[in-house]
Design a protein around this nucleic acid. Structure first.
Lengths: 160, 160
DNA sequence: GGTACTATATATAAATG
DNA sequence: TCATTTATATATAGTAC
């Protein structure tokens, strides 16, 4: 961004890439700090350095965990087991709606369970789920497996 | 940062704060995009907007999940398993070494498949999928169902 | 490998529509 | 409130040590 317009592709030269990384990493974190203080919001950033399994976690490991748990807390399945993030998303939302809480919860449960499942499948693993969650997941997955089977039958009958 | 030097404290004026937030949020995300493409690293950002329970998750929910699971993986308790983390770690190295493109492609397929499954489960239905996709999905779902069963057994044995 | 410098590109606060 | 403009502050690519 100076001396020459940057070409936005991977920098193949090793040392140049590392130099750029260090500069931009600090710039990025400075900006993140600024936006949180200026606007009074929660944010975190996780940056994996090249060849380093330990990420740079901003603003701190602890804070990142808080933000992440708030992020993950979107699922009610986890909510039930965690008193921890009381003031975060769920409460705000439920209070705001202030009615039909149970109806909404029921409607949402399937979606949220699906979300949990998705998280599991995309790498979270099942380790953090309790027996209740696993039960629900099992049902959900079974249902969908049956649906898939039905569809496969349908295809086999109509396309062969 | 122009017209006047910014003073780094919370902006109490509501509309001014929101304007600043929008500008800076987009700037921040742009910078994040740049550093990841320029330096070939993994990163994610989670930004909670004022009065909005849903965070802005960059670069995507999916990618954030990947990065977070890698982040969580630092804790020795959770260190084993997690193919996804292995993959992303490996991917960096492989990219740096510029080889095994085909392995990457295979990885991508699994990711895409998972993404498809998620879409289906979250309401898309299976109608638009071909027999091939359904076959793959079936395998994927079955695998995960078995994993769930295993976990349930584990729980039942250890918690009753 | 790092730091320091500096010329230039970018980001953005304030103004304007 | 939003988009566009503009003047200025900041970030940073290239350079030199």
């Amino acid at each position: 961004m100076t001396r020459s317009k940057v070409n936005l592709t991977y920098i193949s030269n090793d040392s140049a890439r590392r130099v750029t990384f260090r500069k931009r990493e600090s710039g990025l974190i400075k900006k993140a700090q600024e936006i949180t203080t200026l606007c009074g919001i929660d944010a975190c950033a996780i940056i994996f350095r090249p060849n380093d399994p330990e990420p740079n976690v901003w603003p701190s490991q602890l804070e990142a965990q808080r933000v992440i748990s708030r992020f993950r807390n979107l699922s009610p399945v986890e909510q039930n087991r965690k008193m921890v993030d009381q003031e975060s998303f769920t409460r705000q939302r439920l209070e705001a709606m202030n009615e039909k809480v149970s109806k909404l919860a029921k409607e949402n449960q399937h979606k949220q369970l699906t979300q949990v499942m998705y998280q599991c499948l995309s790498g979270g693993g099942f380790q953090h789920l309790g027996i209740e969650d696993l039960n629900n997941l099992s049902v959900l997955v079974s249902q969908n497996l049956r649906e898939i089977d039905r569809r496969m039958d349908f295809f086999q009958r109509h396309h062969n």
